[in-house]
Design a binder for these strands. Structure first.
Lengths: 138, 138
DNA sequence: ATGGACCTTCTCCTGTACTGGAAGGTCCAT
DNA sequence: ATGGACCTTCCAGTACAGGAGAAGGTCCAT
């Protein structure tokens, strides 16, 4: 069982498809420091190992949790530095949770306001609109 | 009682302060078509009537209802065209409400996911982290 | 007449996560 | 040798609502 790793090298398009994204996005991630600079073939093509797909999957899981690419990069940087990013992940998730709760509270308040305005505007008496105001419903 | 309207003219800075915004923002609104092109003094200064403040207040109320400037402009354009924008306002508020509800539902679902991840990450056993994965909590 | 506060236009920048396109190089099959 | 699919780089733009700052003109009081 000789396993030659060079056989498993992948071009950017293959990696992109395997990870469910596009080659352009992968170049963008590399530029942003989320993916390490890929090896190159003699002709300059990026040459990935299958681990790249794992890393991109992680990025997608982070995004699904509502983390920004900058935050995901922080985690990746810690791990790349040899440390275990659990503590940082915990902090980020805590902050993200507080943020989500705040957004939900804001949206619920906004919902009440807009619902009240909409109900007022639902009265079919446009003739009472005053030309002095732009719209009495807002 | 002779009322000379020219006495009530306002410079952009005054209008901005009265409306709780900045001169820069008012020039931006004008450029975007939310404010009509202001009269000019002989030296080129914008010369507003107090009605401008009313219009800016309306813009702010629209923003508070979560409308975009483009949507607010639609309302303003209808009114400026001599029509009563009640129906359109109603439609916009309806759409906005549906949008808010969707956002709230999305955030609640996201909240559950993130809370579950955070709870998992709260277990103080980082030594079980596997180096093969970037982070087992995400 | 000079300083400071205000005004004008102009262009570029912010953050987020990409996406589109141009111009050119490479790989492989026919 | 030629066509098409793939790759490379770089530049620019998307949506949103302004903000930053430069270079210059104006108004008013001292």
């Amino acid at each position: 069982m000789t396993c030659d790793t060079s056989e498993t090298q992948m071009r950017i398009g293959e990696v992109a498809e395997a990870a469910g994204t596009t080659a352009k996005t992968l170049r963008f991630y590399e530029e942003q420091g989320l993916l390490p600079e890929a090896e190159r073939t003699p002709s300059g093509y990026r040459d990935y190992t299958p681990e790249a797909v794992v890393r991109i999957d992680f990025i997608h899981r982070g995004q699904a949790a509502g983390l920004t690419l900058a935050q995901i990069k922080q985690i990746l940087d810690i791990r790349d530095g040899g440390e275990i990013p659990c503590g940082h992940v915990r902090d980020l998730l805590d902050a993200r949770l507080a943020d989500i709760d705040r957004q939900i509270a804001d949206l619920l308040a906004l919902r009440d306001n807009v619902a009240a305005l909409r109900d007022a505007a639902a009265e079919p008496e446009p003739e009472t609109c005053n030309a002095d105001e732009v719209c009495r419903y807002l």
